[in-house]
Write a protein that binds this DNA or RNA. Structure first.
Length: 654
DNA sequence: AGGCTGTGTCATCAC
DNA sequence: CGGTGATGACACAGC
């Protein structure tokens, strides 16, 4: 059993090294003490491997999130904000630990603790300790980061020392004692986190089974070994502190502090900077860097370590971090500084419990992208219905734009698919009786197949040059389906209008503002039937657009609800797993305490020198930490007595 | 032939 | 009070 314990301990050390390398805190002190299995890390909350998965999966995505092509409504935006706040208020309950993070890697004895020369040091053992970090709430982000930044720093530095993991590339670091450099296998962070979480569970199971009292002597030996081991490496730890603090002190740029306290920066990044996510990998080339002055830190903090290195964003964006202290980028040790902040940011983000940030981010980013000022300048807010509407802007098909008016959608690609091609059908039929009014430009409108009522240019500026979106609008018209449907559907009102010799297209009737429409009704001296038809055409056209908008909103709402359901289900599963692990932990701890109590009581003697019977005495731990031996109150006797007294009381009452 | 989906239209309500 | 947007309900066409 002791041999098994030894092998298990060694395996645990190696496993913990891996966990430390990816920033997962593992408590080994309790395990090494021999009585408490290393199960507390499962309750570290969002910082555990479980909650790293969502964010890493975000980084796995090139776009940084699963793009939802439709723009959500503003209330959904606020709903996501509310959900985010709720998640934040959940906090991250923790058990107090003494050794939250430790890292071991060998550095050559001959090497000096030079941070810049860590690339060739592989024989010394450095320990990183995070003592007393018992932050129990995500609101203590700043303090916790301050206390844990060293651990993150060293972890990231070590990541940087792994060579291929420069700038925090998302690769599983190879084991130190392995020595084989050929085993570099790209593992996605989400998979890694998931596998590690599973390994944690397995570890818990195995450790629970191995917590045999017979192995306690060996555990105490291991404890001594580790105590000696840690004591020997305190000096190295101090070196590490100085080594890290120097570059950090050089980073006097206020942006650094802003990046460290990224609890707010994250929000800003989400709300104010859609480029701060993975999308920057695609947009960075198109957007000038000068537009993103505050962005680099955010971008670096969210992308640098785990973005695909092919994007090249890491090196560019880590400038503010690395420029201050990075002497040699090839050394990679200083790159770990940017990476360490990066990892800290990741840790903070994960502590926020942003498991559902993918959905939130996608909607927020869609919203923000839609509120792009340039687009707002191009697009009118009136659902593309009014004459002021310039909704033919070169927006991609399927793009929804949040408008400033009550009608929050502007569909330039599918709006009112009935009338434009009607003109085409007119042309084919050779009906051009109103050539004076239905000019060639009007006919050309049909050629462009503008499926939108919102094309004000059709009405105001019939010149072909006034349709910059002509090419874009061609695409939806290439659909034979729509064309046929449009021709049939639109011909109804158009033919009625022609029959009544109304010199306007339905498109014009619908798009002209109400004042102008009233002027037209008055100026042309239409008959009652014509006026009725004009009003009907206008009403039906607008209602058609409204119906399309309404349906699209409905689809958006359904999609958003489905995403929220999926997110909540994932959250529920995660919480259930954590609950199970917590119960398992509590059971193991209770078992250990019981064994410990028996062991202690068996060694104690009463006044007459006889050993205390474990069944008759128990250990009570007071609030001041003092442990006292108290006799066990016999529940059976007390209950029977209590039942008797209760009966007596009842009898007295009766 | 029947179900599903997309679209247009009408009626109604609210602003 | 009229115009307009939003939306449920219905009809119809296409698959």
């Amino acid at each position: 059993m002791q041999i098994a314990k030894k092998y298990f301990t060694e395996g645990l050390i190696q496993f913990t090294i891996l966990l430390s390398l990816i920033g997962v805190r593992v408590d080994v002190d309790s395990y090494l003490n021999g009585y408490y299995p290393p199960l507390f890390d499962v309750n570290l909350g969002p910082s555990s491997a479980y909650t790293q998965t969502p964010f890493h999966s975000l980084r796995d995505n090139l776009d940084g999130y699963s793009v939802h092509p439709k723009c959500p409504e503003l209330d959904y935006f606020f709903a996501t904000r509310r959900l985010l706040d709720e998640v934040r208020t959940l906090g991250s309950p923790r058990f107090p630990t003494q050794l939250n993070t430790w890292l071991v890697h060998q550095v050559s004895d001959s090497d000096q603790p030079d941070p810049g020369d860590s690339s060739n040091g592989n024989n010394r053992i450095d320990i990183n300790l995070e003592v007393g970090s018992t932050a129990s709430n995500a609101n203590d982000e700043g303090k916790h980061l301050q206390s844990s930044s060293q651990g993150e720093r060293q972890t990231t530095q070590h990541l940087a020392e792994q060579g291929p993991c420069t700038s925090g590339a998302c690769q599983l670091p190879e084991e130190e004692d392995d020595g084989s450099s050929g085993g570099e296998e790209r593992v996605s962070p989400s998979q890694l986190a998931h596998s590690l979480s599973l390994e944690q569970e397995d570890l818990l199971d195995s450790n629970t089974s191995l917590s045999d009292p017979a192995a306690e002597p060996h555990a105490s030996a291991v404890n001594q070994h580790w105590s000696h081991f840690l004591a020997l490496q305190i000096a190295d730890l101090d070196d590490l502190d100085s080594m890290v603090s120097e570059p950090l002190s050089d980073l006097s740029d206020p942006d650094i502090t802003g990046a460290i306290s990224q609890d707010v920066s994250l929000r800003d990044a989400v709300v104010g900077g859609p480029q701060a996510y993975g999308r920057v990998s695609q947009r960075a080339e198109a957007r000038p860097v000068t537009r993103q002055q505050p962005a680099p830190l955010l971008m670096e903090s969210t992308n640098s370590s785990h973005l695909d290195s092919s994007s090249g964003m890491t090196l560019d964006l880590a400038g503010p971090f690395t420029s201050g202290y990075n002497v040699s980028r090839n050394g990679s040790s200083h790159d770990g500084m940017g990476g360490c902040l990066d990892e800290a940011v990741f840790d903070q983000i994960n502590m926020l419990g942003l498991g559902g940030m993918d959905a939130i981010d996608s909607h927020l980013l869609n919203c923000l992208e839609s509120i792009n000022p340039r687009l707002l300048e191009d697009l009118d807010s009136d659902s593309g219905l009014s004459l002021e509407s310039g909704s033919q802007g070169p927006t991609s098909p399927g793009t929804s734009v949040v408008s400033s008016s009550s009608s929050s959608y502007c569909e330039d690609d599918r709006g009112a698919t009935g009338y434009s091609s009607e003109v085409d059908s007119i042309n084919s039929k050779g009906i051009a009786d109103y050539s004076a009014v239905w000019s060639l430009e009007d006919l050309s409108d049909g050629v462009w197949h503008d499926h939108s009522y919102s094309s004000q240019a059709l009405y105001h500026q019939p010149s072909p040059t006034s349709f910059p979106h002509k090419g874009i609008k061609e695409e939806p018209l290439s659909d034979d389906e729509d064309q046929g449907l449009d021709s049939r559907e639109s011909s109804r009102d158009e033919m009625r209008a022609r029959a009544l010799r109304i010199p306007f297209t339905a498109l014009q009737i619908v798009n002209m503002p109400v004042d102008e429409f009233l002027e037209v009704l008055e100026a042309h001296g239409f008959s009652g039937e014509q006026v009725t038809l004009l009003r009907d055409i206008r009403r039906r056209g607008k209602n058609k657009l409204a119906a399309q908008n309404c349906r699209k909103r409905k689809l958006d709402a359904i999609t958003g609800l489905q995403e929220e359901v999926a997110r909540l289900q994932a959250q529920r599963n995660r919480l259930l797993r954590e609950k199970q692990l917590t119960a398992k932990t509590m059971g193991a701890v209770g078992h250990q305490i019981k064994q410990l109590s028996r062991d202690v009581l068996s060694r104690l003697r009463d006044d007459s020198g006889r050993p205390l019977h474990p069944e008759r005495y128990t250990l009570q731990c007071g609030a001041n930490g003092r442990v006292s031996v108290q006799p066990v109150r016999r529940p059976a006797v007390s209950t029977t007595a209590g039942s008797k007294t209760d009966k007596r009381k009842k009898d007295k009452k009766q």
